[in-house]
Every structure is written in C-alpha cells, then in structure tokens.
C-alpha cells in the first residue's frame, strides 16, 4: 500500500499514513491528525455524451433493425431511464519484481524395432528453470464492483483516450446515480499484478515463485456513464444498458415473437373427424395421413408434443439480444 507523508501540524515532524486512512498519529508528538479529502486517490469523471432521447432512439433503432422482434418493435413502451456513473479503478505504474519458474520438458526420440520400423517416443527431459526480472509498464482499468447486471464495458480504452474531469460529487449526484465502489484498492492491485505475470502459467509448470510490486503508482477512480432504460410490454419489464459515451447498446434481452401453428391443428382435427364420420376405412386412412403430417411438421409423434400443438402452446423465436 502506498504511503503518504505529511508534515505534522503540531510539531512539524513527518508522519506517514496509508492511502485511504482518515486519521494518523504522529510518532514524534503523539497527536492524532484527521486527514480530509481523498487521500491521494483521484476521482475522475468521463462526462456523458448521449442524452436520454438519443439512448431511447438507439434502442428503437435496434428493435426495428434486427431479429424477429422487429414486427412488434412498437409494442415495447419506454418506462424510465436512469443515468448511472459506475466507478472503475485505474492503476498505472510499473510492475517490478522477479519471477522464477520450473517447467517440465519433453523430447522426441526416434527408434527402430527389430523389423526396422521407425517409431518415435516421448522422453522426459531435464526440468527447465528460468528466472526473469519483471519491469513492465502497467495500465489497468478494473470495475470497482460487480457490474454483471449491466454488461461488459470497454472502459480501459475509453479512460485512456477520453477527456476526464474531476468528479464534482454534488453536481453529479443531483442529476445521476453515482455508484459506490465496493472493490477495495488492494483487490484492484492484486488483479493488476495478476495480469502482469509474464506468460501466465504455461503448460508443464511444476513450480513457480514470484514477487511483483507496483512502483511509480498512479491511482484513480474513473466514473463511467451508462444509461439504464426500462422498456415494458404486457406487464413485462425489459432492462437495457446503453453506453452513454458512444451510444452502443451494452446489454439488452428482448423476446422474439410467439410462433404458433394456427391452421394445422384445426385442419388435422377436421380431417380425422371427416374420415371417421364418413366410413371407418376413410377414418383410418385420414388418421394415418394426419399422423404423417404431424411427424413431418413436428418431427415427433409423442403425446405431449401432439397435445401442445393442439392446445396452441406457442414457441418463442430468437429476439434481440446484446451482451
């Protein structure tokens, strides 16, 4: 954990506190100082570029363009929309340390049997040991919470190229929901270090040791904007997440149309009854023909499928889905 050094306001001596601490005791005079402010963590905001109307229009466009849901695009009605700012930890620095790895090796040996047939066999070789110094630049954006209900956001790139401004909490909270970070700095650091391990954990690794730390660390909480819209139809609610920077739909799940056989069940019933009320031979023949048609249409002749077809139980086609 990075430490911050302050001058004690009572005795003037230097004292340290860990990042995130709100109070610290001076080791020279014992006076406790309360630390206000954000203790070294920058809170940055990426301002939204898409308003509610544009977000709604994007959903309408998607519904009208794709899938079987386009026939009923107008049947979905907009209920409400909320602008959310989701916090992401951004860690920049240099991953410094070392890693040591012991790996099994195998080699192919060519041999010939008594008949002169050539064959190869795999022979275990000496374990390979490698030491490497790690000194790699690090720039990671990781969600400061679980945002799976909203979908995956490409924040890393956005935070690197878009203009960020300092978060004015009052102003932002007055017009949007500012989500609280629930993932701690320590966990974000661990994630950052995990992705810097060179080569990951390749096959054949039997032993691995590493000590990697982040130096020249710069830490910030970047708040990224998304629109959360609710659409309804027939009492059902369909949430949609939209990137409020580039207006792409991050996540939505609209159902397809219900598909139901309308004519076939009625025609089959009519055909069977027509046959049996005319003469038994015609009844048997038309029943057999109906069974053939059923098999051709549904692919099966089991009782539940026949009852479902006659009952008019609908099948759902693929709808519009993102994320």
């Amino acid at each position: 954990m990075a430490t911050i050094v302050f001058k004690c306001p009572h005795c003037g001596g230097p004292f340290e506190c860990a990042e995130g601490d709100r109070s610290a005791v001076c080791r020279f005079c014992g006076v406790t100082s309360v630390i206000s402010g954000d203790s070294g963590v920058h809170r940055l905001l990426i301002r939204e570029r898409v308003d509610l109307n544009a977000a709604r229009a994007a959903v309408r466009k998607l519904l009208a363009a794709g899938g079987d849901a386009r026939e009923s695009a107008s049947s979905f009605s907009f209920k409400e929309g909320t602008l959310l700012f989701l916090p992401f930890w951004r860690i920049r620095g240099i991953a410094t340390g070392w890693q040591w790895r012991e790996k099994e090796t195998f080699r192919e040996e060519v041999e010939y049997d008594e008949n002169g047939t050539r064959f190869t066999r795999t022979v275990k070789g000496e374990n390979e040991r490698s030491f490497s110094l790690v000194a790699a630049p690090l720039d990671l954006s990781t969600p400061a919470g679980d945002y799976s209900p909203y979908g995956q956001m490409p924040v890393g790139l956005a935070a690197a190229v878009l203009k960020c401004e300092a978060l004015d909490y009052r102003e932002t909270a007055a017009r949007a929901t500012v989500v609280d970070p629930l993932k701690g700095i320590a966990q974000a650091r661990q994630e950052a270090l995990a992705i810097t391990r060179v080569g990951g954990n390749p096959d054949g690794t039997v032993h691995q040791e590493a000590r990697v730390r982040i130096s020249s660390e710069w830490l910030a909480l970047t708040y990224y904007p998304i629109w959360r819209l609710l659409f309804t139809r027939g009492g059902r609610v369909y949430p949609v997440t939209i990137d409020a920077v580039n207006c792409t739909i991050i996540r939505c799940q609209f159902p397809g149309e219900e598909q139901r056989e309308r004519f076939l069940p009625l025609a089959l019933i009519a055909m069977v009854l027509l046959g049996w009320t005319t003469m038994p031979a015609a009844g048997a023949a038309l029943t057999a023909l109906s069974a053939y048609l059923l098999k051709w249409r549904t692919g099966t002749l089991d009782a539940p499928s026949i009852i479902k077809l006659l009952a008019g139980t609908p099948k759902r086609s693929v709808g519009v889905e993102r994320g």
Partner: peptide, 10 residues
C-alpha cells in the same frame, strides 16, 4: 522515494 526499496531489490 517510496518505490526505492522495490527497485533496489530488483
């Protein structure tokens, strides 16, 4: 200065 020990070790 806070990064000096890690770099020195390296």
């Amino acid at each position: 200065e806070v990064d000096v020990p890690a770099l020195a070790e390296l």
